[in-house]
Design a protein around this nucleic acid. Structure first.
Lengths: 345, 345
DNA sequence: AGATTTGGTGAGAGCGCTCCCAACACTACA
DNA sequence: TGTAGTGTTGGGAGCGCTCTCACCAAATCT
């Protein structure tokens, strides 16, 4: 019903002008209460709803925000992290009255071909960019400042607004926790150093070790690419050098690491402790359940939407930067369940 | 650069009128080649790109399609199935020149509140609806036919276009395969019968058993809700009645089922065979790797986009219906690796 | 009483585009 | 020479909306 009614139509039916109807629809003050009622009744009866396109054309605002997930990530897309992030952003968009458009680029060509449509077409009020790489070409282009932009994850350039988890602090927490449990040959299955998250978790981990007088033996370090398979492979390499504990920089990689450990006949936590990062549901259901540094993915997504809307409203010139706190969830894999009473940290 | 150039601006710079520039931009035929070159040069130089909003306002087409994931599903969202589907749909949209808008509803209220904005606002050319329940209230409203609509998954109403996997045939394939492997106490961890997929997989499974002269012992059946946890619980119930094989109606539930089996000290495939459904990457990495009925999720998403675009173009009055073929992937969990040479079915 | 403010209203312009039609040159026909 | 094409171009109207402004009556002031 009522797909193509216009303001004019409603006006005619209510015996007023287009302008008055517009005022009613937009809740402007100077309308006779009686007239307002009459107009609202007609709107109700006809099921009229304003044409968003026409409105946007004149107002210059569409209410649409874009979520861009760049190339190379689609392989990682199986990581539930992205599902959660999308969910958080979608939910926050709904709440804020925005419409969310999703741009998943499969490769660099698609990126190059579609990017102008995304930015220049004028449909998007703003953009959330996620999973940026070091020296991200997309980011380089966007940072020019054509359009309000928020990054999820720390970018490697200045002057851009972003939300990030406390990767550094979280990794340090994992390191000190393992050290406090009495382990000293502590290895690392790292996230790729081509990402800021990878670098931050690496640095935080090393710093945490240092706080307890430990260092990271290069033999006990192998990096993955966030995939389950890469965690499996990396752990196999590290196992050869007999660590007594390992920090795996993501839950999904930890699942893979656990698979390698099991195949090698090593028991977690009896023979080796494990702590991971993310706090996804899967970390709770693994065997054994993973001690993990939980980051608030959904909240970060929501915060990104809020920041973006503030940026769109033009409320700030300085870039917003927000680091979300993380939390160590102690489960079985670190073998410290008994010392738990004192609480982590 | 060039955020707010108009046709008129380009025309002025190229010494022609708005209309001529429009013709060039839209590749119309009757333009002097020389003039066309000149205009194109100006466009190139200025980085002009047409305002999609204005264009849509007059043409009535926006190129935006919506993907709606209704309430109650967000809990299931951790099922990688949805990630894949979204990916497939996104990719197909990009290819087709569409923009994809994502609507994930968290609950019925949000659904009711946002639905009008989705359908009536006039921004969407069409809609893809997924994960419909039996008697889906959303679907009931949409089927009124205000907007081109394609469902992913078989809906329980007539007259709507949809793409579905061959759930029935696939489940039958699982059943006959297990029977052919020599098992006869074959159980089922079913998908919820509040979904057509659940019903179709149940019926197909029973039909497959019947083809081999078997029936489904009610004690050997328990339904889950697609979550890992529900597969775990359902399998625990079934285990008590000692099946020699079980068909689990989704990979994610199968991972949970496997967890229950392991805890019970039962070996797969030596003590019990398992076949699941979906063919997600996780099914390959489980211990043991799962024999599974693979459905082409990405392709189904792509097909949905194609169908929707045909519907939008008004090329057909009859609803499109497409059943995607499935394929039995034989791995270790069914214990038939040796008989594999002959191939399944 | 006359001048000014007020609340309420409608008409016009314009957002950037596409479409239609008229206008123009120029060629080709009778 | 007149008429009908043919190719190319520009202007007008209009998509549905918002916004500014002018208008009118009623209320308030001097």
């Amino acid at each position: 019903m009522a797909e193509n009614l216009t303001l004019e139509d409603i006006g005619r039916l209510a015996g007023v002008s287009r302008s008055t109807v517009s005022r009613v629809v937009n809740d402007k003050s100077n309308v006779n209460p009686e007239v307002r009622e009459r107009v609202l009744a007609v709107i109700e009866r006809t099921g009229y709803s304003p044409n968003v396109l026409a409105r946007s054309l004149v107002s210059g605002r569409t209410g649409v925000i874009g979520l861009v997930i760049p190339s190379r990530v689609h392989a990682l897309f199986e990581d539930p992290y992205f599902s959660r992030l999308i969910q958080g952003i979608s939910s926050a968009s709904n709440r804020a009255g925005n419409t969310l458009s999703l741009f998943i680029f499969q490769n660099e060509e698609e990126e190059a071909a579609l990017y102008p449509r995304v930015v220049t077409s004028g449909v998007l009020d703003g953009l959330i960019l996620t999973a940026t790489r070091m020296a991200d070409p997309l980011l380089a282009r966007m940072a020019v400042g054509e359009i309000p932009l928020v990054i999820v994850g720390r970018p490697d350039v200045e002057g851009v607004s972003y939300v990030d988890a406390d990767n550094r602090g979280g990794a340090a927490l994992a390191a000190t926790h393992l050290a406090d449990c009495g382990y000293h040959r502590i290895g690392l299955v790292g996230a790729p150093v081509s990402t800021t998250a990878g670098i931050d978790r690496l640095n935080g981990f090393v710093e945490g070790l240092a706080l307890r007088g430990l260092t990271l033996d290069p033999d006990l370090r192998a990096d993955g690419d966030f995939s389950e398979r890469s965690g499996y492979v990396a752990m196999q390499r590290i196992l050869a050098h007999q660590p007594d504990a390992v920090f795996v920089a993501s839950d999904t990689m930890a699942i893979g690491a656990l698979r390698a450990v099991r195949e090698a006949g090593v028991d977690v936590p009896d023979d080796m402790a494990l702590v991971s990062f993310d706090g996804l549901p899967s970390s709770e259901r693994s065997v054994p359940p993973l001690t993990t540094v939980k980051q608030p993915v959904t909240d970060a997504g929501a915060r990104a939407v809020e920041m973006l809307n503030e940026l769109i409203a033009g409320e700030a010139k300085d870039p917003y930067i927000e680091i979300m706190p993380v939390e160590l969830i102690v489960r079985q894999s670190c073998g410290s369940a008994r010392q738990l009473a004192a609480g982590p940290q």
